[in-house]
Amino acid sequence: MTNISEGLKYTKSHEWFDPTTGRIGISAFAVEHLGDVVEVDLPEVGTEISQGDELGTVESVKTASEVYSPVSGKVIAVNEALADSPELVNESPYNEGWLIAVEIENNEELDSLMNSASYQEHCSEEE
């Protein structure tokens, strides 16, 4: 059973969004499948992104994985720690391994995301 954080909103492509902080990251399920993360490519603060757009890339030893934005909005912060310590994504996918924070434009987009229970179900279907 994979580790899923309560209170977050999830996408089918395994990103999470925290409605209280605006942070975006990738789930423990995604991290397990990627393996050791060695490089992270993220947008700059101020970039406008739309829901479903590619916001960046997380690269592991084995493969590169695109990260899609769970919501639309403006990037207000980027996790600078990942430049030197990309392994934080593996070690702490829901906390220190966050990727970017956005100012959400339209709260209605949240309805299209999954809560932790439905995401759990989604993961077991993919397993």
């Binding site: 393996g35 050791d36 060695v38 030893v61 084995k62 392994e87 593996n90």
Partner: peptide, 8 residues
Amino acid sequence: MQYEGIKK
């Protein structure tokens, strides 16, 4: 493929 991790 790996045990604890490729890097380690």
